[in-house]
Design a protein around this nucleic acid. Structure first.
Lengths: 182, 182
DNA sequence: ATTGATTGTCAACAGTTGTTGGCCTACAGT
DNA sequence: ACTGTAGGCCAACAACTGTTGACAATCAAT
C-alpha cells in the first residue's frame, strides 16, 4: 500500500503508545511496534530516527488541568480525583509514563517536568498559595500515581474493584487536605 | 579463590538485589550481576537455574508489620508512615519490587501477595474491622507506594527534599483516615 | 515518457542477552 | 600419592536487539 508520511507516522505513534504502556520501555521492541502497525521496522527508524526519539514523541501529552479552573474551592479535592481517574483511563499517556518512567531515566525526567510544569502552577493559581504549591503538587502526584499504580499496573484486586465514586469517596478528602491543609 | 557454595550464593543474591533495585528486571543482566559479585555468569546459572528463579529468590522478604502490634490506636497513622519510610530505606527490597513489578508479571503477583498476606491481616487485627481490611490495606499501599515512587524512583524534588518528620506530618493523617474512616 | 522525489521492502550488521557444556583447579578422604 | 567431588572459569550457542544501506515500487511534475 501507499500512504502519506504523516498517516504512517501517526499509525506508528499510536502503536508505540500501546506497546510502551503495556510492556514498558525495554520490552516494547521496535520490531513489535512495527508488527502491530503492520509496517517494516525500518520505517520506524526513518520517521523517528531512533527508539529514544520515538519514545519522546509517544510520551508527549497534556494533563489538561485547565478544566479545573472554575471549581468551587471546597470541591477541588473530589474534582481533582475524578479528573485524574479519567486521565488514567482516557489515553495510555499516564500509563506510558509510569511504566517507562521506572526504568528509563529520560521518562522519569519527563514525568517530573510534566508535574512541575502542569500541576504545580495550576495549584498555585487555585489555592492562591504559591509558596507551598510545589509540595502540595508533589503530595497530590504521589497519591494519584500510587492509585494509578495499584489500579492499572499492579492490579491490586480491592482497588480494581472500586467504582469511580468509591475512589472519590476515599481519595477526595485526602486531596482536599493536601490542597488546603496547614 | 575458593568458597563454600552457600557463601557464593549469598554474594550473588545481594548483588542481584542491588541490580534489580537500581535497574529493573530487564536491564539487570545476569552478566552485570555476576560482574558486581566478581564471579562468572555461569555460576549464577549453576546456583539459581535461571534469571527468573534468581529474581524469585531476590524478591523474597518480610515487611515486618508485627512491629506495629502495640501502638496506640490514635497514633497508628504516624507509626505506619514511619515504618514504611524505614522499610523503603532499610533494604532494597521494596525498591526491587516496585522497579520490577512494573515490567515483570511475576513480580507484580509477588507484590499483590505480599500486601495481601502481610498488610491486610495486620490491619484487620489492629482495627478490629476484618470486613473493610482489604480496602483499607489497598488504600494505604497505594499511598505509600506512591510516596516511595515519587521519592526513591522518580525523585520528585519536593518529595526528596522533605524530612521524615515532614512526611509524617503530611501522610500521617491520611493513613489514619484510611485506617479508621467510615 | 522521463525524470525526481517519496514510500515501502529486504537483508544484513554488530552488539547483547540468557543459557549450556567442557575443562581446569583445589581440596578432603583414603 | 591417588582419587572423587565440588567450586570456578572459559568459549561458544542461538536468539534477539537497534540500526543501516541498498534496492524496488509508486506517484507528481515536467
Amino acid at each position: 500500500m501507499r500512504r502519506t508520511s504523516t498517516e504512517t507516522k501517526s499509525i506508528i505513534l499510536s502503536a508505540a503508545r500501546e506497546r510502551f504502556a503495556a510492556d514498558g520501555y525495554e520490552r516494547a521492541t521496535i520490531r513489535s511496534i512495527a508488527a502491530d502497525a503492520q509496517i517494516d521496522p525500518a520505517m520506524v527508524m526513518r520517521y523517528f530516527g531512533s527508539k529514544e526519539k520515538l519514545f519522546a514523541a509517544a510520551a508527549e501529552f497534556d494533563l489538561r488541568f485547565d478544566a479545573l479552573a472554575d471549581v468551587p474551592r471546597d470541591q477541588l479535592g473530589s474534582a481533582f480525583v475524578r479528573h485524574f481517574l479519567r486521565q488514567w483511563e482516557a489515553g495510555e499517556a499516564l500509563q506510558v509514563l509510569l511504566r517507562t518512567g521506572i526504568t528509563n531515566d529520560g521518562a522519569a525526567e519527563r514525568m517530573r517536568e510534566i508535574f512541575a510544569r502542569q500541576l504545580a502552577p495550576r495549584i498555585a493559581a487555585l489555592t492562591g498559595d504559591p509558596a507551598n504549591a510545589p509540595v502540595r503538587a508533589a503530595m497530590i502526584s504521589a497519591q494519584m500515581l500510587g492509585i494509578g499504580l495499584a489500579r492499572y499496573i499492579l492490579r491490586f484486586p480491592p482497588v480494581v474493584a472500586m467504582s469511580e465514586d468509591e475512589l472519590v469517596h476515599w481519595l477526595g478528602p485526602t486531596i482536599q487536605r493536601y490542597l488546603t491543609a496547614d
